[in-house]
Structures are given as C-alpha cells and as structure tokens.
Design a protein around this nucleic acid. Structure first.
Lengths: 209, 209
DNA sequence: GCTTGGCATGAACGCCCGTTCAGTTAATCT
DNA sequence: AGATTAACTGAACGGGCGTTCATGCCAAGC
C-alpha cells in the first residue's frame, strides 16, 4: 500500500524551491537572503542547508530545471512535417510554455549574471540548444524554398526576442486570451520569414474581432 | 578669464555616475555596495553622499537620464513623411541608439524592480511615451492603408522586443556592422507590418552577401 | 518502552551593508 | 598671511549577510 503522505523532507524540499523561485524572481537573487526564504517556508535559515549546499546552487538548480523542462517539453511537442507548420508549432509552444511559468522565465533571463562562470556556461549551453531548435526549422524552410530570410541568425534572434517579450506584458483576464495571442504571433512570425502564405491562417479571420 | 579645469566636484560627480552605471549593469543594483562604487572612483564611501542623497536616487537618476536621452534623441531624429519611411527611421534609430549605450540599456531593463514604487512609475511613464511613438507610426500606417496589422499593441510590443533584443547578442567586430544589422531589421519589420513593399530595399541586395 | 535516526533549531562566526558626521586637508579669496 | 570654504576622510552606528554546528525533538522500528 502506498504512503498517505511523504516524509517531511519530501515536502520541505519543493517548498524551499518554490519560495526561492518566487522571491528570486520578484526581488532578484542578490536582494533575497536565505533567512527570507526560510521565513517564507516557515523554518529557520539553517534548515535550508539540509536541502541545498549553498545559495548559488539553489539558484542554479532552479534555472537548470527550467531550461531542461523547456527542452524536454519541446522535444515532446507534436510539430508537423513542413517547415511552416513546424514554425507555427514552435511559436504556439513557446508562448504557451512561457506564459505557464512566468517566474521561472523571468529568473532564467534576469539572473544569468548571478551565476558563477561554470554554472553560467551550463545554462548558456541549454539556451543555445533551444535557439538551435528554432534555427533548424528556419534553415529547413530556406532549403525547401518556403522561407525567404536575409540572415538566419538575425531571424532566429528576432523571433525568440519577440516571443519571449510576450511575458513582459501579457496578463490573464486581459483583452486577448493566450491562444488568441499565439495565433496573432503565428501570423506575424510567418510574415517575418517570408512570402509563403500557404500554411498561415487568413488575416481576415483575426481582423474581424 | 575662464577656468582651465573644472572644480573637483564637477569631475567627481560624473565619475561616480559612470562607475555606478558600469557596476550596476554588470553585477546588479543589489549586488553592488556603495563602498565598491567609491573604490572604483578612488574615494571613500562617505564622499558619495556629497553627490547623491542615497543609493536609490543614484539608480533612479541613471535610469531617468537614459530614458530622457532616448526620448530627446528620437524627437530630434529626421523621420521622413510616409509611415513606411518613419517606421524604417524608428528601426534604424532604435538599434543605433541602443547599441551606443549598452550599459544604460541593460540597467533600464533589468533594474526596474529595484526602484521604489514612485520611481518605478516615473520610469514606466517615460518608457510608455517611447512605445507610443512607435504605436503612433503604426497607427498612421494602418490609417493610410500602408500597413496590415492584426493587432496594434501586439505589433508594437513585438517590434520593440525584437529591436531591443539586438543588444543581447550584438558584438562589435562581429560578422555584421551595426548598419548592416539595422538594414536587415528594417526589412524584417517591414514584412511584419504588412504587404506594402514600396519603401523597403529589395532583399536581393542583402541576399548577395 | 527504548533506541535510532531524520529533521529542525537557534546561537554563533566573521564579514559587509547604507548612511552619518566630526574632523582634516588644500585651494581660493581678501 | 590669514580667513573662508569646498572636498574628502575615516571611524562609527545598527543591522543583515551566508554558513556552520552542537543540541534537541519526535516519529518509526524493534
């Protein structure tokens, strides 16, 4: 028979990570003390060291966990065959995934400079793999004559930047749903990469709103 | 007769602001102590308080100064008449201005959360005015039938995000000059906002590289 | 009922923080 | 030469920092 509840440790660990994520993302790594994290969880500062070796590791594990979830989730995403469909899938996935975990996204973008060099390199490598996933789609689309792109790297960085930018302004309960935002971005990104209009929805549908 | 050199105070003040900008942007506001800024300038910590009322004001003045320079510079920029030309001017201006002062840009984007609410609101208002400048161009282009845009706000945010993103990867001495990057972005933004191809340079020119 | 061991405490360590201010220096003015 | 003043020092204030560790608690296993 299964346990009804986990041991205390099995609960406290995640609680610490959740509190650290929330506080780090709101106030910044350097501005949040171990004592403040502990207070949020309801324990003393010393207790944190039963679950993490030090403050830097706590930050690094949060960021690594986020980046690995991102890569895993994208690898499991249904993507379609043709480059335009794959690109549309990437846009929808990116917006949905990032809007689901705004704190982790904010942390991963803002606290890179708080990582010691070794940890920075590891996170950077994971981020690079994600960028490459998009670049691969664009490259395939160029090769297939479906995209018209002046510079692959600049197009890649532009798309990532505009998609991630959604997190800075989107609020639930606003004018547009997440899905509506996703569809408008699918359209804008499709224009950005070239003249192929085959797989993109007709603008008129969105224009009617 | 005019003074040969300024008084010490006229030199030390700017030195403090420059050191604070550099350190804040590299390590973050919370991670930089007043003593460290003072050491960079070559004075004792107490001296800083002859030039700023406190650490928060030092940060706020740096951010406010940056945002006001941004708005002033844009207001003085030659812009052209037609919306497509104005949009291209905005793109070129944004990239040029931001690449000229990466530290201030980084600070203004990363340290908003370190501002007390009153200062945050003031910086936010300045940023809003800049966004509005772009939104006004897009609105005029829609009204003139030159742009085809599904959602004005989303297009505005997308363009700002992709342009500001240049600062995260551009390095002098790299594959492309600032001007080349600017022209490629002019082209990508032109596609984003609609089918009007009149004012945009032919892609072939860039494609030849 | 007693022992074991996982879990948490809370005091302590040495250090750094933002800010103040009485006192010192050195240039300028009369 | 002496007075004035702007510029800066360096010590001090109260407090918080990350981290360690001897000690205690209490539920689980015998």
């Amino acid at each position: 028979m299964a346990r009804k509840t986990g041991s205390r440790a099995e609960i406290t660990g995640p609680l610490i990570r959740r509190a650290a994520l929330s506080l780090f993302s709101r106030h910044g790594y350097a501005a949040v003390s171990m004592r403040r994290i502990a207070a949020e969880v309801g324990v003393q500062a010393g207790t944190l060291y039963l679950y993490t070796s030090d403050k830097q590791s706590l930050l690094f594990e949060l960021m690594r966990n986020h980046m690995e979830e991102l890569l895993t989730a994208w690898s499991r995403e249904p993507k379609g065959e043709e480059p335009p469909a794959r690109l549309a899938a990437f846009v929808r996935f990116h917006i949905r995934f990032h809007l689901e975990r705004p704190e982790a996204v904010f942390l991963a973008y803002m606290e890179l400079r708080s990582l010691v060099p070794e940890n920075f390199a590891r996170i950077e490598a994971l981020r690079q793999r994600y960028e490459d996933a998009l670049a691969d789609i664009l490259r395939a689309g160029i090769a297939a004559g479906r995209f018209q792109i002046a510079d692959l790297r600049l197009a890649t960085m532009s798309i990532i930047a505009m998609l991630t930018g959604v997190n800075t302004w989107y609020r639930d309960g606003g004018r547009l749903s997440r899905e509506e935002v996703g569809e408008i971005y699918v359209e804008m990104v499709a224009r950005l990469v070239g003249p192929d209009r085959g797989a993109a929805p007709d603008l008129g549908v969105l224009g009617e709103r």
